[in-house]
């Protein structure tokens, strides 16, 4: 997948999980890994940048399992940014789906039509 595109999506995902609750770094990665392939660890650099931009604050909290953890907490600025990003994303993805599904037509119908066209073109060549 295109790196920039993936970066944008991961940014939105990181903001989404942290809009829901405060999490520590590994928990953010785990939360995303449940749904998407995050093997090359693009999450941490994005999490770090978003914190630097003031979208998250970090707080150290003791854990019951021993070591203290660094939790990421969404700020007011982060929430405002998340809301505006979500708006843009929802509008964009809505548009993209409208285009790729051709106003609700099933992929199968599209593929059949294209396959028929290519078959006809090949028949014409012969």
């Amino acid at each position: 997948m295109n790196t920039q595109f993936k970066r944008g999506i991961i940014e939105l995902c990181v903001l989404s999980v942290l809009a829901d609750e405060d999490l520590y770094g590994y928990a953010v990665i785990q939360r995303l890994a449940e749904h998407i392939d995050v093997k090359d660890n693009t999450i941490y650099p994005i999490l770090r940048r978003l914190s630097k931009e003031g979208y998250f604050e970090t707080v150290i909290r003791e854990s019951s399992e021993g070591a203290a953890r660094k939790y990421y907490q969404m700020t007011k600025k982060g929430f405002a940014y998340y809301v505006s990003l979500r708006d843009r994303w929802d509008a964009f993805i809505g548009g993209v789906y409208a285009i790729i599904t051709q106003k609700g037509e099933k992929d199968g119908t599209l593929f059949k039509r294209l396959a028929r066209r290519f078959e006809e073109a090949e028949d014409g060549d012969t």
């Binding site: 520590y24 770094g25 590994y26 990665i29 941490y44 953890r69 660094k70």
Partner: peptide, 8 residues
Amino acid sequence: DHREMIEE
């Protein structure tokens, strides 16, 4: 940060 995440 990585030490914490890797330990976890």
